[in-house]
Design a protein around this nucleic acid. Structure first.
Lengths: 338, 338
DNA sequence: TAATTCAATGTTACCAGTAACATTTTTGTG
DNA sequence: CACAAAAATGTTACTGGTAACATTGAATTA
């Protein structure tokens, strides 16, 4: 259909009557070119519809001016704030941001990392801290900076920014115990590494208090309706339960609605806690108790450090812990109840 | 840190003792290389940690084997199914899928299209049907196939796969009227083109029935808590309202919870309808009435046609309408109520 | 056994932007 | 006005995978 092939800098240069180097300079920094040419170059660029082409200078090992972000799942509310934080830094710095997702699967992650590297991204943000050996080697070989986000791994590939999920889950469990609950069941969906860390924190708190852990778990990805099913299972298997600690807010919302539909009062009969403090929790009555994670800040700091590395910066403290807070009013402590 | 620079095909070739052309052939199709060499090549590839490099053949106008997908917002539940559909086609076909998001902003979309084109994606999937003139021109100039998804535009850039939002909203409104509702208020958030189409359908149905349209709207992006606020506003401004048609399920869930917290019975006092049929709607009681949109199918068909175009295929019927269905039981008709 | 065919591998050229260096033009100053 | 300094523009070389064509050598056939 469109016969006039994609124009090159050469085409633009010929139209203006200069060499392509001058056009290249204009594109990178107009101040390097005499003002007299600005108008002509702009017109020619516009007339031909020039589209930048990163391939040549990616090839001659300049930089791509792009960073890659790998997400376990696109369309997960948890990551929208992370992305906002990342782009609040990369955008003004003139870096493009490319996304891919790997469905919580290390082998797919490996393939996605290979793709990102095949496009010569200048840096990577990974949102998991468990990788295949080949993934680590590829990144090492590519020699680009990497930031692992969300967790605080013992052995980061390069840098890491996150929070201590074990501590957060422990503190939430302790709060439930402090409110008088004695039979706290943990509802777990997809058993990724962060879920395991949360379960560990939950177990620690129960152990210290001399209470028993009860897990109701599934490999299925978490959804609201799954939360309802898990709550039903928990009530059937542990009739004496007086609290549910859910691995995330999706499950918690489903669980809370299911409990209320059975006529159980929250938090008096059953306390319920979630994780991540999504907006939906605030729309419920009582409001959902949850762990507030600093996702936007994590994205921002991760991007700052990544770009810092690209600028030659050094970060001796390779792992940053940005902490968390708890919102307990509502479905755990009745105090703030509407 | 890693001084041994990224290995090239040349490095691998020298290790094996052949030319890089042989390695290139092995990578693209091992059958083209004698079996005797397979083991050696594999070992060398592994030992050096070779990472594919798309820049050279992108440059020499071969293809990138990647397609770009532009989403209004990453982390929107609506698009997870779309992506699943897309990748169910692109993955087996050996195409990589790159994502970017533009926050419902045509100018940001323009920048993202430019980025995708600067990386020489072979095709694009756009999830909006309104674009800047420059965006259209760039795509035209690049000469790559494009599929616009979700809507059924009158003048697609190239191909389009979606559904008729006006008809869907009209039918949902008609169903509410048929159930006896007379004062149906539309709750609208972010006024993107699909929202406008839905509002048009809502107005058509009301007009035909001789009823009056009432809009409560905001430019803010939709959230669950926003749904609650909009419902409160609607109840204050239209005390006689007996139904709420919400522009999407997020708003509808917030609205329904807010109504129930005020002691209103759903659907007897207030019927509530959403749009998109997300999982959360099924966790509510009564279940949320909604418009079921074939998002996964849209993604699949869009990707099939995009790859078809790349293979030289032609599609005289440029726009495909994949339809919709309504789920009415629950928050509109009490019939299926739990 | 010579001629033919084909599989396996090698050779060459190419893509387009830009870093580094070279040259030309303009500006500034005594 | 001459000459140095600075600004503007030009020239050259480089990047690495692969299409297209060339060559080699082994197998097959008349």
């Amino acid at each position: 259909m469109s016969q006039p092939k994609r124009p090159t800098l050469q085409d633009v240069a010929e139209l203006v009557g200069v060499t392509k180097m001058t056009i290249s300079r204009y594109l990178r920094d107009p101040k390097q070119v005499s003002e007299a040419l600005h108008g002509n170059i702009k017109d020619a660029l516009d007339q031909l519809g020039y589209i930048p082409n990163r391939a040549p200078d990616i090839l001659s090992k300049a930089r791509s001016q792009a960073i890659g972000v790998l997400l376990p799942s696109i369309s997960n509310q948890v990551f929208s704030a992370l992305i906002r934080g990342v782009e609040s830094v990369t955008e003004p710095a003139g870096y493009q941001t490319l996304y891919a997702h790997f469905g919580y699967d290390m082998l797919i992650e490996e393939a996605r990392v290979a793709m990102m590297l095949s496009f010569h991204v200048d840096g990577l943000i990974l949102s998991e801290s468990h990788h295949t050996e080949r993934t680590r080697r590829m990144i090492q070989t590519a020699g680009i900076p990497v930031v692992e986000v969300m967790e605080t791994p013992d052995k980061p590939i390069d840098l890491a920014v996150g929070l201590d999920h074990t501590a957060a889950a422990r503190e939430m469990t302790e709060a439930m115990i402090a409110s008088g609950k004695r039979c706290i069941v943990y509802l777990a969906a997809r058993l990724d590494s962060r879920t395991h860390q949360r379960i560990a924190g939950y177990r620690q708190a129960l152990g210290t208090a001399g209470l028993t852990a009860h897990l109701v778990e599934t490999e299925a990805p978490s959804t609201f309706t799954l939360g309802g099913k898990l709550a039903d299972d928990a009530l059937a298997r542990h009739p004496g339960l007086d609290a549910l600690f859910c691995t995330n807010d999706d499950v918690a919302v489903g669980a809370m609605l299911a409990c209320q539909q059975r006529g159980l009062r929250v938090p008096d009969d059953v306390a319920i806690a979630g994780y991540n403090a999504l907006d939906i929790g605030k729309a419920l009555s009582p409001q959902l108790a949850s762990v507030v994670t600093p996702r936007e800040a994590i994205g921002r700091v991760a991007a700052e450090r990544l770009l810092g590395r690209l600028a030659g910066g050094d970060y001796p403290d390779r792992v940053v812990d940005l902490g968390y807070t708890l919102t307990l009013g509502g479905s755990v402590y009745a105090a703030n109840r509407a």
